[in-house]
Design a protein around this nucleic acid. Sequence first.
RNA 1: GGGCCCGUCGCCCAGCCAGGAUAGGGCGCCGGCCUUCUAAGCCGGUGGUCCGGGGUUCAAAUCCCCGCGGGCCCGCCA
Length: 642
Amino acid sequence: MASSASSLAEEKGVKLEENPEYLVSEPPRPEYGDLSFPAFRIARPLGMKSMEAASLLAERINDALKRLSLGLASVMGGYVNVRLEAPRLASMTMEAYRRLGERFGEVPAERSLRIVVEHTSANPIHPLHIGHARNAVLGDSLARLLEARGHVVQRRFYVDDMGRQVAVLAYGLRLLGFMKPEGKPDHWIGLVYAITHTLLDIRKLKDIVDELRRNGRDEETRGKIRELDELVADASELREKEPGLFDRIADAMAKDPSPERNISRLMVLYEQGDPEVKKLFREAVEKCIEGFRETLEDRMGIRFDKWDWESDLSWSGMVGRIIEEARRSPYYTTYKGSEALDFSEIQRDPEIREKLRIPSSYDIPPLILRRSDGTTLYTTRDIAYSLYKFRDFNADKVINVIAAEQRLPQIQIRLALIALGYRREAFNLIHYAHEMVSLPGVRMSGRRGRYVSLDQLLDAAVERARIEVEKRARSMAPSEADRAARIVGVGAVKYALLSIAAQKPMTFSLEEALDFERNSAPYIQYAHARAANILAKAKEDWGEGGVEWEEASAPPIRRRLLLQASRTPYIIAKAADELRPELIVSHLGRIADIFNSWYPLDPVIQEKNRGARLYKLALVDLTRHVLAKGLHLLGIEAPEKM
RNA sequence: GGGCCCGUCGCCCAGCCAGGAUAGGGCGCCGGCCUUCUAAGCCGGUGGUCCGGGGUUCAAAUCCCCGCGGGCCCGCCA
């Protein structure tokens, strides 16, 4: 339909403003047909009345459909509606499925691109929590979608080991005098970090209180004392968790006349590559990453091709070279006494504003490149890293999956790239922003050790799934039940995170994620398992011929399942091109709904007529495949049994 | 003070970018369905001033403007 509209426009020498493909939709009532096109939308640019455009377009579409004997177009109001010839659609779709096998649904893009997807990149100072999970699951799904579209994708994790937070952790570990994680290493690291950070804050606040008191500022003193009380409460909670660890760090810190100075010194020494400090930092961060990998790779099946250490980038001289380039740039300036890049001129360019999506009346502040002690800042290092991602993979496009709160620094990075003459990179660096995840009633804080870790959530989900699996575990071997529980539990968490569009803030309710009914991963997985089960019991292969394609026409629900399943390649392409995994989520939901309504009404194996039975088997097989494919693109496994 | 995102049945969400034919799902609630390919399922019912107000248009949940409510950002943190 879309191509008929395009060619019509082309002949009239008119360029349509919008892609006609976007105008194709499903009519509101099934009697109207299977697809519809609002002809009035293209009537005006073509210089026609809407009815005129509709009948002309219907004629074109009919010609095209006739060539394939695929259906019939009719005019209704200003719409052209098409009713597809189900048997023909069935044989074409199944033929493609048989030819492509497991690849059915993937449509290669016109041009295969090299794309880097950087995601998760959590600070290596505490375990992953639900917010990181949203990032990880989105990033992983985007990567899978892009691959399905024929792009060459590289997944990278940025290990941010040069921030102040890691220095705080390293300082704490040095006070502790050893590094022997008990239990999962990232959890242990998280505890050390929280204890150290909280003790540091208490120390700082105490100093402030003393100072205020000396100056007789009673009002302010009382306020600060209240803050202090809260901190002490947090500290005692931490102490309860691990008294030995806590006291050791506390005692050692009490002997240090200036913890802050020592932390800053650690940062400087690490950036300089001091061997002893380097060993300390690296060991600490490696422990944490080890824990991350256990969660991401072993438990969630989210893998990375590269783990990029921020410090490596810095030591290699890349960050230094960026600063050199900045100094030579005409936008180099001094801001608040520090070296900086000034964007006031660049951001006046309307093309740049539009391409980087900078709001029209928004003034991007200058970007400071270095602290006064000479150490670099995160954003500066990220400029180097952005370029590195393009170069190292020879990438056409780099997608950063990063929380929306980092919008400003992400814009600054792209402006900086332009300032340094890297326009192509700036325009092909995409900030895929997602909003935060909160847990109801939980005030999370990594610095205070107050968080629900992703591991805990996954444990709860898998545990819940195990109970459900055991309820119906019929003929399942224990190892099989284990596997099913893991697939269902982890799948449910992933689905919950993917089913809400990324730009919406979400409250993650474990309760709801563990409701394994409709609109959940288990619901889709269940439909898949049922389909797989029918196929397993069938002992017949529809692919060897004898399928009666006429069976595709009726009953309506059977026909609808075919129609929906056959849209899959289009949906996958769209979801990949628009970076919208949630389109896959809703497509799977629709297919599972139709399949679940269909199969109890229209038994497959008991069907007496062989040709009909084989067609139904083909339809079950297609459905099974399409569900598995979609789940896979979301990073969710599809069990054969559950 | 400036900017970004969000606001749709009691609750959670889709639809909005690319305006059109009675605004869709799920949860909840009410009532049915396990001798027939797994009831994590199916069938029926209940429920909406699309945050408010203007404007553009033959036509607005969708586009524009002004408000209101919630989240986030504006650091020599990351």
